[in-house]
Design a protein around this nucleic acid. Structure first.
Lengths: 237, 237
DNA sequence: CGCCATTTTGAAGGTTTTCAATGTCAGTGG
DNA sequence: CCACTGACATTGAAAACCTTCAAAATGGCG
């Protein structure tokens, strides 16, 4: 009975990874079957609903996660409440890190999110026999660094119009919308777009209106947007 | 003769690391004596003079470096020449990465710099027998990511005045100036400060003038600066 | 001393923000 | 079914902040 039960749990774990939609892009993808078996046994999957907090700045860094479904916004706050979104994390992206003693930002679900969590301490134990997991985490971290630096250029040097154009192209890219007229859902509210682009909600709204008037984009119900003139948008960005 | 020569070279390499001023903070610090011996044999030290280019965007990523002396600015450019400094790298900091196929930014020496280089391919070979080097690189990369995200908040949400204050405090911190009235050299020209803070040179100059008039800072010849009212500066930032 | 790069300062202008009001839309209850 | 509500988005007008353009001042160095 006990034996059967253990076997059952292990099967479940392996099934979980085998059926995981991000198994080929998450940081765990480098593991072989043996490593994955051990690794999957360490994981806990959790579902968050819209606007739920996942990490809080200042709290002890106990868990890292891998996003399975949904989008997570990573943001920082100033004392007076001004907010800056420093990253949007999509499925396959790593949430948190295994280095810092505490979280240095907030993470919040945008819409429903499914996240696969690991204890930081257990990852480090695991790494003793599977050190390549460090390289895999490094790869993910390096991507985030590269994205962050691209965004520094945007925040520091681009105009509002250029920022909005870049934002739309980023979303098109993240949605793998390869058509000449990509169509996708904008997952952020106007205020969140503003907090991502370092603008006010009014400036965001005005620039969206301009793009719509100039027929560069079209917006349908439910925040669906179509990029009508992709090349023009690219040259603006 | 050959034997003697080989031994001489190995001694030189070990000496190099033993006398290295950043041996306790660079990413190579985790290596034991054996690892360090092999590692140091892979390294090449190079000296750059002021304004010399170290990396160029788009070039194949062949080398990573560890800064031994001096400061390096990492920056990105827009097509029309607008520039954004995305990082200032100090002694002990890692330059470049071992993941990307090519450099995605420019790196330029600020003043004279001494840098210890390693071939990316050789680091990866080395890691096969010393995988913990990945964790060490991860730690450095993670720091850079954290700094980049702090800077996103600054660029996106702070006023010019707050930016200048934050910049001064950053320099004080990097100079380990723990006095109540820290004093240090500003290594950047006004234009570079502007490119770091997402401002124009005139705005930077005006805000420096304001701080000087309000006796918050004092500036001496040779870009030496004293923070007179540290707490005020902190509350402004 | 004079040159050149750099910095500072002034005045005008523009972009973005702020403040305020209006508009839209989905959900709720009369 | 439609009015009401509250959250979110848009629009307008004025103000603020930062930039742009221009000129003067400073400072290092031959």
């Amino acid at each position: 009975m006990n034996q059967y039960n253990n076997h059952f749990i292990e099967s479940l774990n392996l099934d979980k990874c085998n059926s995981c939609p991000v198994s080929t892009i998450s940081f765990c993808t480098i593991l072989d079957e043996h490593g994955l078996e051990e690794f999957s046994a360490m994981s806990t999957t959790k579902i968050y609903s819209d606007s739920e907090l996942i990490f809080t700045e200042g709290k002890v860094n106990q868990y890292v996660g891998s996003i399975i479904e949904g989008i997570v916004k990573i943001y920082k706050l100033l004392d007076d409440g001004r907010q800056q979104i420093v990253s949007l994390a999509f499925p396959g992206d790593l949430l948190g890190n295994i280095i810092d003693p505490e979280y240095s930002y907030f993470a919040e679900a945008i819409g429903q999110c499914k996240i696969c969590f690991y204890q930081v301490s257990r990852i480090n134990n695991f790494a003793e026999s599977n050190p390549l997991i460090y390289r895999s985490i490094l790869t993910k971290t390096n991507e985030q660094l590269s994205d962050a630096r691209d965004w520094l250029l945007l925040l520091g040097r681009k105009s509002a119009k250029e920022k909005i154009a870049s934002f739309l192209l980023l979303l098109a890219d993240r949605n793998n919308a390869k058509s000449t007229q990509p169509r996708f859902k904008i997952p952020l509210k106007r205020q969140e777009i503003a907090d991502f682009l370092g603008l006010t909600i009014e400036t965001v709204s005005r620039n969206f209106s301009n793009f719509k008037n100039q027929q560069i984009i079209r917006e349908q119900v439910g925040h669906m947007v179509t990029i009508v003139d992709f090349n023009l948008l690219k040259s603006i960005s």
